[in-house]
Design a protein around this nucleic acid. Structure first.
Lengths: 183, 183
DNA sequence: GCTAGGCTATGACAACTGTCATAGTCAAGC
DNA sequence: GCTTGACTATGACAGTTGTCATAGCCTAGC
């Protein structure tokens, strides 16, 4: 893994664990084994650029999951989305939450890309829901519910250090989508 | 309003707008019109204590809303919960999101109280749902969904600078609770 | 073998952070 | 009127932050 993207991935991880403010450039360099000097070689835009790239990097991974599973229908997309968050929480031992949400919560300088990411995820879900026979307006709403509730559930699961909030939300979401798709 | 609680309230506001890391003690003092020296007079525990008190202060307000509206049944509680977040977003002109979530997202030093707050909110909702005839396990899950999805929706609405995500989530939540209560 | 350029190493800078000590103010209670 | 104690004002501290300049390394390409 090339050192540049290792820094981006490391930034995503650290931001997910401690937020943007508590993630210093020095610490990130140490964390990824890169020299501090390299940071401004790879990222002339400084910390802001690093944070932004971390956000789009995370978004790219999620988009891939969503796009691939979307072909299998709404329930498959939902399950894949849920599973990826579950795995994310478990492999981090409930230390990390979504870096995109962390960025969106903090200062507004780098919040632009984060805002687009949320819209992108929601926008990816909408046609999948529609293809399963859900009306456009309802699909828009349901897509917001799925993205919003899972983002919220991840924070709460991490904070409780327990899978319960995520699984509860997942179960209700499944029932709701199943009912919306069926009739 | 006594200057001490003015600092607590100000901390809650600033944390909701910029996160814990980006909220400095000096800025908070200036923001609330209090002298810097007073901070450590009122809060010998330093910034951590301030952050913690801000979290419980916010929680107290929400608990009061939830408890009062809960007497009117599940739908009333839900509507009150939604309304309070909507007002929160509008009066801050979509600059603020939930301070508790901001704390929970960032460092783990002060995350303990935030974690309890989420559990408290969820726990307040459960008996209200049960009293409307929803089975215990389902009520637990629905309560997590309500708290989690609204927390998520607030972040996304703020980030989109638009009420759409919140209203979408609100509408779906209303439908779900209405259906769960009825039969 | 040598040279150019991507990368590293080191160190510095000004600004800011949380924290605290100390001295000063000022109103309430005797 | 005086004293006590809550509060304010000021300034300092050590550490950390983002940022960048400069000097060195070290590997491709000729």
């Amino acid at each position: 893994m090339d050192p540049r993207t290792k820094m981006v991935a490391g930034a995503a991880q650290l931001i997910g664990e401690r937020g943007v403010g508590a993630t210093s450039v020095r610490e990130l360099a140490k964390f990824t084994g890169a020299p501090l000097g390299s940071t401004y070689h790879y990222f002339p835009g400084g910390k802001d650029q690093l944070v932004q790239e971390a956000v789009v990097w995370v978004s790219g991974r999620v988009e891939k999951i969503l796009a691939r599973a979307g072909e299998g229908g709404a329930l498959a997309a939902l399950d894949a989305f849920i599973a990826s968050w579950r795995e994310f929480l478990i492999t981090s031992d409930y230390e990390a939450s979504c870096p995109v949400l962390a960025v969106a919560t903090e200062d507004t300088a780098t919040a632009g890309p984060a805002s687009e990411v949320f819209k992108t995820w929601q926008g990816l879900l909408v046609p999948v829901l529609q293809r399963d026979g859900i009306a456009a307006e309802r699909a828009e709403r349901l897509a917001w519910l799925v993205v919003g509730s899972l983002e919220g559930a991840v924070v709460m699961a991490r904070s409780q250090r327990s899978p319960v909030p995520l699984e509860a939300v997942a179960e209700e979401l499944r029932g709701l989508i199943r009912a919306a798709v069926k009739p």
